[in-house]
Structures are given as structure tokens and as C-alpha cells.
Write a protein that binds this DNA or RNA. Structure first.
Lengths: 193, 193
DNA sequence: CTCTTTCTGTACCTATCGGTACATAATATT
DNA sequence: AATATTATGTACCGATAGGTACAGAAAGAG
């Protein structure tokens, strides 16, 4: 047909995602993006439409990636409690192996754009709902297997874990001193004993 | 000596605080500020120095105001547990009587500027530390009065409450459906039973 | 090999950003 | 009342924002 793309669209999107993750939407310029994506300005517009569309794509990609990571974390291993503990600890140590200062792109977006951009709020709400679902399923499995007490309300515990995860993520963004919030994990997990 | 200010500096600062609270730092323009502060551009620079300095002043003012509000909430009333419950409920209903979509300016700032602006991170860290202190003191009072069990670790409970408050505030920003997180409060408060 | 189609790179567009110069208006002091 | 001093309002500054026009380069189809 014609000249093919000289860059990998998926790689470029991942790079864009990282920039938005680190700097936020407003503080990220097109120049920041093209530099990290290693493409030229018009290529960005041709491939992704514009800053807003690119951000939407990056946010969706992040959401998928993060939820897959959570599912993997909570599904693996025999102990539900150990898995939950490890996941929450991961938020403090740096989500997905990244810097804890970056937090979670979805959480960051809830704060920066949630109240003013319904399109993005819908994505982050969906993210939070699915995250809570994954927690609920994990707790249900724990209850079924007998590891966790039967009196637990899995949906309720899941909401608590979701709020806690968000709180931990935000709390680490401006103060990365782990010891400050690390004991919180253990205390929260007494709720499932 | 000379011509006096035609506006009240405190009022103007409060107006600026509200704009930053609603829109965030980056998304707020000088025009947005002067419009809501009812002053002219050069007056803003003469009185506050610039956008960054104005934001710092607004952030400090918010921190003071918010901590005073928390202190009042947690100090009043006979029951520590009821006070904590009311405070957390207030986050969901709208902090300080405002819209819950705005969340808390300090929390918003942790997310938007925390990792990149040490000057502001210092202010928000101080805020969080003092908030946690107020929680700890409240729990200590509850323990001393016999309302709460003596086995509690007040500092630990305070950290949990602080993380929970942040999580609730953020969670409400992109989804103001109260019923989604309301039960979380009750469940968290079982930790002090 | 030629032509058509798509992508790349440079250069540029307008709008808006944070910040300021300057003339004018208003007050406290003398 | 005259003057010195500060605030106000308009108009503007350079820099940068997001976005695009256009010419040249590269690859498929014939």
C-alpha cells in the first residue's frame, strides 16, 4: 500500500503512559510526549489523534495492565491473606516495580481530572469497580477454602481494601517513607481474621 | 502613607484557595484567579508575588483551616467513636460543607505536585502528620475515658484512620455515589471496638 | 521503473500562558 | 492644598501551549 510506520504503536503508547503517569495530564506537554515516545509531532497526531485521545488510550492501557497485575497477584499462591498483604505491600514499595512517587495513574487521574472530565471519570470508576471485584473474589475464595472466617462480608471487605489501597497510594506520593504507613497494612488485615 | 488596598487580602486569599481547590494548580490560570478574587492582575502580583507563592499561601491557609475543623470535630462531643464516625461521614458528604468532588486540597496537592515539588510536599506532609496526631489524641482520650479498649495502639489506629480518610476523599472525587463507600466507615470503626 | 499512498521532519499557526510597564487614580502626610 | 506614595486598570511582553501545512522520503502496486 504505502510507507509503513517506523515505530511500534504499542511501544509508543507505553512510553506515553509512563510520561502521564509521572507528570500528570496537564503538566505533560506534547514535546514531553514525542521526546519519550521517540516520534515526531505529526506522527503522534496521525497515530493517536491528539493529547486528549492519547491520554485516554494510555489510561485504558494502564487500567488493563494494572488490573491484570492485581489479578495475578491475588490469584497466585495458596493463602488469600498473604496475597492481599503482598499486594498492599507492593503499593508501598512501588506499584509494578515503579517508583512509589508515581502512585497509580488511575488514582492520580481521579484526583486531577475526575470532577471535571466525565469521560475519564468513567474509566477510573470502572477501574475502581473492577479492582473492588477482584478483592471481593479473593475474599470469597478465602472464605470458601476455610482460610477466612465465614462471617465476613466479602463485598464490604473488598470496599475497605479498595479505599485502603487508594489511601496508601496517595499517601506515598509526597512522602515515600515506608515505615510511616507499613503497619497500617497489618492492622487492616486484622479485619479478615 | 498612600492609597490603600481596595480589597481584603484575606478574602482574596480564600477565593484563590477555592479556585485551586476546585481546579488544581496547573489547570488554574491567573485569569481564573483574578476573576474569582475580584482583583486585577497586577494587584495579585503586588499582594502575593506570583502564582506559585499564591498557591503556597492558599495551601497553608487551607491546611490551617482544615486542621482546625478536624480538631473541632474530634474534640467536641462525649463519644470518640461518634466523633470519628461523623468526621469520616463528613468526607463523604462534602468536606467543610463543600462539594465532595473537590476533595481535600492537601490530598489533591499530594497527588498533583507531591513527587515534583518538595516545597509543597513538605506542607502536605506536615498536614498529614498533624492530622494523624489529632486522630491519635482522640483515640488516646477515648482509651483514657474507658470508652475504647485499653489494648488499642493509638498511633497505629491513627495511621489507619489517616489513610482511610485520604482514600475516601479520593474515591469520592470521581464518583460521588455515597452508598458505594459509606459502609466502609462502619467497618473501619470496628477496629476500635 | 513508475506512480500512488502513506509516513517523517521542519517549520509554522493561533491562542494562551505567567508576568510586567506605564499611565492614571486615590489617599496619608506635610 | 500640594506632594509623595501606593494601588488600579489597560495594554502589552516573550515563551510556550496544542495543533497543522507542506515538502520530501520511503515502500507497496502495476
Amino acid at each position: 500500500m504505502a510507507r509503513p510506520r517506523e515505530f511500534d504503536e504499542r511501544e509508543a503508547l507505553t512510553a506515553a503512559m509512563q510520561v502521564f503517569w509521572e507528570k500528570g495530564y496537564e503538566a505533560t506537554s506534547i514535546g514531553d510526549l514525542t521526546a519519550r515516545m521517540n516520534i515526531q509531532r505529526p506522527s503522534l497526531y496521525a497515530a493517536f489523534g491528539g493529547k486528549e485521545e492519547l491520554f485516554e488510550a494510555a489510561l485504558r492501557a494502564y487500567s488493563q495492565m494494572s488490573l491484570a497485575y492485581v489479578e495475578r497477584m491475588l490469584g497466585s499462591g495458596e493463602s488469600t491473606k498473604a496475597a492481599l498483604q503482598a499486594f498492599l505491600q507492593g503499593i508501598i514499595d512501588g506499584p509494578g516495580g515503579g517508583n512509589p512517587s508515581y502512585g497509580c495513574l488511575c488514582v492520580n487521574t481521579m484526583v486531577e481530572l475526575g470532577p471535571h472530565e466525565p469521560k475519564f471519570a468513567a474509566i477510573t470508576n470502572d477501574y475502581q469497580a473492577k479492582l473492588t471485584d477482584l478483592f471481593r473474589e479473593a475474599v470469597e475464595r478465602g472464605v470458601r477454602s476455610g482460610e477466612l472466617p465465614a462471617r465476613l462480608n466479602p463485598a464490604l471487605i473488598a470496599s475497605v481494601l479498595s479505599v485502603t489501597a487508594i489511601g496508601l497510594s496517595v499517601s506515598m506520593k509526597s512522602n515515600t517513607e515506608r515505615s510511616r504507613v507499613e503497619p497500617v497494612i497489618k492492622e487492616i488485615l486484622t479485619l479478615i481474621e
